[in-house]
Computed example of a mutant assay.
Amino acid sequence: MLNRWQYAAQLPNGFFELPRQLYAGQPYYPEAEHQAEQLCRQMAATHDIVVYSDDFRTVRLVGIFPKDATDDTAYFGFWETKDEVEINKLAFDMLRQEAAARGFSRVRGPLHFSTYFRYRLRLGAVPSWGQFDREPVNPPYYPRLLAEVGFRPALTFESRRLRAAAVPAVYRQQAAALAQLADSPFEFIPLNASVWQSLRDEIFGLIQQVFGQNPAYRAVSRAQFDLLYNAEYAAGLCPHSSVLFRHRASGRLAALSLCQPNYQPLNLPFITVPNFAQHYPQLPAPRTLLAKTVGVHPDFRGQGLQAQLAAYAMRSFLAHYDDVIFCLMRADNLSLRFTDGLPVETAHYALFEQDV
């Protein structure tokens, strides 16, 4: 028998115990798990939040029901479970029944309110890098359990690691983009914590514009934005490759690229926010660059800015890194062409859905 809790001001006792057990001794841990209480508190005004569990012994499942739904989709998130299918069938049956009673026709997840926050499952075996910062991770049996309770992939994603041996080929392929930087109509603004603070209003607006049309993206408030993307976060970015492009003629921010080293080899505590000045010098070889959040404002697309953002990072890459991971790209994203034909290690992810 499972219990049902309607969220009211705080999460139930024991909410965090199951993931502590499941990930003990693993080289990965769910991103922002420690922020769940604060996130639910912020989102409760616009979402009904319902927790289903057997007192957090076997399964934890959260139903997320938008109060002002613009489509017919409810969500599930904060799902953690032991490898037991029957109790998951009960939990997801409760979720589907409630979604149907509330007028929703499908359930999608795992997704913590918006694609802005944690979402997706990682599929297959653990890749060589273990877990990069904010990569969705989970026990390997999770996708199978979702299939067994009736879910199917709705959107798929990839991360691709390009090892050092293939880097020279990239420079040959991107020679034209590198040459274009010399007379670009855009100003390049290297990103660090102080620049982030001074331009945070513009950055917030740019990110909303760049990613606002992505499937399942919902606009976030400034408080929600600052929860994950703030000066402390910016201090972990690579200041050599992270950049804003400002259109010289109009003065508008046109594109951004947020990159950072893969700090995973340092085995920092999960709640530690990496800091480039402190932690980059401690990294052993090979040093890996994470190409994380890269995008172009809709008004400036079609001008080759994706290639120029990559070329900007390439100018300093050889002095600071050995290889690179292109992180969490939609499987149908044109950016994937950057590594087509090159030897890569690929990790796969999916967002799942089911009709109710």
Rank of each mutant, 00 (worst) to 15 (best):
H320L: 02
G295D: 02
P274E: 15
P185G: 06
D68P: 02
A165M: 13
L283F: 01
P286L: 03
G295I: 01
N333K: 09
R152W: 03
W129N: 07
E158K: 15
E17S: 05
L199M: 07
A219W: 14
E345R: 09
L237C: 00
Q208H: 12
R287F: 00
D323E: 15
G63D: 04
R20H: 11
R218G: 00
N88L: 02
D71M: 01
T339S: 14
I325V: 09
L318P: 08
Q97L: 07
F270C: 14
G14V: 09
F151K: 09
P110R: 03
G124V: 04
F186E: 02
N262E: 11
E98V: 11
K292A: 10
Y233Q: 14
H112Q: 15
A169R: 14
L2N: 09
S105D: 14
Q42H: 13
G295W: 00
A249I: 04
F132K: 13
T58R: 08
E158Q: 09
P239Y: 08
G341R: 15
Y263H: 08
G236L: 00
M43H: 09
A350M: 11
P143K: 06
Y217E: 04
L90G: 13
D68Q: 15
R4P: 00
N267K: 13
T70Y: 04
G14P: 14
L181F: 00
N230A: 14
N88K: 12
D93V: 05
T156P: 03
D68I: 03
S53Q: 07
T272Q: 03
E31Q: 15
W196F: 06
A347Y: 01
